[in-house]
Computed example of a mutant assay.
Amino acid sequence: MSFFRTGQVLAATLFLSTAGTAQATSIDAGTILSTFGTISLGDYTLSSHTAAPIYVGGNFSGSHAVQAPGNGEGTVAPGISGTVVVAGDISGTPTLNNSTVLAGTISGNINGGNNTVTTGASVPAAAVRTAMEDLSRDLAAMTDTGASYDFSDQNQLSLTSGAGLDGFAVLNLGSGVFLQNGTLKSFSNTAGTFIVNIGGSNITIGANFNQDDSNVIFNFYEATQITVNSTFGFGILAPWAELNLNGGGTDTFVVGSTINQRTEVRGTFTGDLPETPAVPLPAAGLLLIGGLGAMAAVSRRKKAA
């Protein structure tokens, strides 16, 4: 594993050891959703400027800028974090500045300056995928709390959470046909976290849902393909879907099995999630975290000397 800044080697070797370090034993879906904007569980293609941290469980290909506010970082688990975290390879010529990149390999070239780049990383991609799939199933099983909607007039779509229950409002819909056309004119969320469960395998979002709320999750628990052609201001959870983001952008997160991103993602999830069983972190992930802790300990000892 190597650590380097652009044009400057920081350290050559990382000894993997778990002695004397705190151990993370699970992947927390809430932490990932609240710190990454784009979460691609498999391969990812970036064809647009974007403005939130990126997690990729497969390979990253892209030639555009990633500018997370305040050079923010997403966290997979303690010791596994960065503005861009990629389990596989980074190809193309993405541009970052003053950012942290964690990747398996880099066959392309990262443009920009003052970036801290780590290669040879062991990112627990399978555990992250399991956590997101489990979350989608758990949300889909929640009981409808009586949220209301009116999709009869495409130009006057309305969606209201109602009071919800224990901080959560749930609306269960068998189809996403209402998302194809129209404009969301009336929206209200007073419950806290608002979960909209939508069935169907092939979803096209052409309606203008530009009333942003980063406490709202649209959970596409059956989708295998989703195409977004308009502004969509709510979180998209679609862990089994090929997700194509074509226009409008979003101020909150997106999760897909694979993602082709041609528009901007600008935010993360800010709500709460119901308690779900944690996904154990695999041994390789524990070794990585232990190794990072060991390296930090060596650094502290050198300073003390």
Rank of each mutant, 00 (worst) to 15 (best):
T143E: 13
G112Y: 10
I217N: 09
E275G: 05
A77K: 01
S214V: 07
G167N: 11
G112D: 01
Y149E: 05
G206A: 01
I259P: 06
V196A: 00
A304C: 04
T231K: 13
T119S: 15
D213Y: 07
G182D: 03
A169W: 12
D150I: 13
F194V: 05
G271D: 06
E133M: 09
E264F: 05
P124R: 10
F218A: 06
V66I: 13
L102I: 15
P94R: 07
I27N: 08
V279G: 12
T231N: 13
L139I: 00
V9C: 02
P282N: 11
N109C: 11
M1K: 08
D212R: 09
G104V: 07
N260I: 12
G247V: 04
A169F: 02
G20W: 02
T160C: 08
G233T: 01
V265L: 11
I217A: 05
I80R: 04
G146K: 12
T93W: 08
A29N: 03
T21K: 05
V298H: 10
A304V: 06
G176W: 00
T119C: 13
I54L: 06
I198L: 01
Y44Q: 04
S214P: 02
T31V: 11
G79M: 02
S152K: 14
M295C: 10
F151N: 07
Y149N: 13
T143G: 01
S61N: 15
S61I: 13
N260V: 14
I106L: 04
R137P: 05
L179I: 04
I205G: 01
W240P: 01
N181S: 10
T190V: 09
T270H: 06
T119R: 05
N97I: 02
E133F: 09
A207T: 01
F168M: 02
K302T: 11
L292G: 04
N260Q: 15
R301H: 05
A131E: 01
T276K: 11
I289G: 12
